[in-house]
């Protein structure tokens, strides 16, 4: 069956054919792209777009409901929090924190993980043993606890959060890259390159690395929502950004105490996290299906 189907397909698929998407997919992807773009713009231009200083306390306006609810006004479309700070502005500045974390963590952990996976999968032996033990250590030590320890010992700061996230995410790239390298090194073209005397560096970067790109891109996309969720969780536990800094997790943590009298301070940042993480996941799933469906079970 499979062989028949393969035979019927043209030998050289039309360039770009695999990027064509069904209408169901388009129905999900179009809003996803829009939402992600919106958050990107909101984060990057937060200082230009927001009408208020996100940290300015106006006690007289505290817990103003959102515009559409009775008692709310368009001056604060999403309402204000317990200290009278404008929630829309805070959500926008919160997007900036998330963007910053993503922009630093994803490339760093992808780079470290890829290098580690390449070395372990190619050199094997001790390199491989050490890498696999490092991965085991990470799996056996909950990131949240370690993050809290670091926060207590070295102080809570965005820099520490970023470092911790990198320490706890590089290994997922390393595991996948290592597995790919293990199978690629047995390929005939790699053996041919080896026997024709190509250096390790050349083989790794000319012959093996290009074949890993799909895996790394898919993994990085799927990691974006994860990284945002970790940052939010750390900020929720007050071990993320410095107190007062608008971060989605910290906003939820503050709004929690007023949950029974005001719903919006925890709903608004919560919805922001949910939307970004949801759309990020949808994008990642789509990329995976297009580029490499066999990665379906990586998480």
């Amino acid at each position: 069956m499979a062989a028949q189907a393969a035979a019927q397909e043209p030998l050289f698929a039309e360039r770009g054919a695999r990027w064509r998407i069904s209408w169901q997919r388009a129905l999900l992807l179009t809003p996803s792209v829009l939402i992600l773009t919106l958050f990107f713009i909101a984060g990057v231009f937060a200082d230009l777009l927001s009408a208020y200083d996100p940290e300015k306390i106006v006690l007289i306006e505290r817990l103003t409901p959102p515009a559409l609810q009775e008692g709310g006004s368009w001056a604060h479309p999403l309402g204000t929090d317990n200290l009278g700070r404008d929630i829309l502005s805070r959500v926008m500045y919160g997007a900036r924190v998330s963007l910053l974390v993503v922009a630093i963590c994803i490339p760093s952990s992808a780079l470290i993980g890829t290098l580690a996976g390449l070395i372990a999968g190619w050199r094997l032996g001790w390199w491989d043993k050490i890498l696999m033990r490092l991965v085991d250590i990470q799996l056996a030590l909950p990131a949240i606890l370690f993050a809290l320890l670091i926060a207590v010992v070295f102080g809570a700061s965005l820099r520490n959060v970023i470092l911790i996230i990198i320490v706890f995410t590089w290994s997922s790239y390393a595991r996948l890259v290592r597995a790919d390298v293990l199978s690629l090194r047995e390929q005939e073209y790699v053996i041919a390159a080896q026997s024709s005397g190509a250096s390790d560096k050349r083989i790794l970067f000319r012959h093996i690395f290009p074949n890993l790109l799909n895996t790394i891109v898919i993994m990085a996309t799927l990691e974006v929502p994860q990284v945002i969720l970790i940052e939010a969780a750390l900020s929720f536990l007050n071990i993320g950004v410095a107190p007062g800094t608008p971060s989605w997790g910290a906003m939820i943590s503050e709004g929690r105490n007023f949950m029974t009298i005001a719903w919006w301070p925890i709903w608004m940042p919560g919805i922001a996290i949910l939307l970004v993480s949801l759309t990020g996941n949808l994008m990642g799933d789509w990329l995976r299906d297009v580029l490499d469906p066999r990665l379906r079970n990586v998480r």
Binding site: P225, L229, A232, A233, F236, G249, I252, R256, M259, T260, W263, I266, G270, I273, L274, S277, L278, G280, N281, L282
Partner: peptide
């Protein structure tokens, strides 16, 4: 999709909000 995307601390608070409060 939702289960994967929802932060657990927020979900917890929402459940408390609806089922407890």
């Amino acid at each position: 999709v939702l289960g994967q995307a929802t932060p657990n601390f927020w979900l917890g608070l929402m459940l408390i909000f609806f089922f407890s409060v």
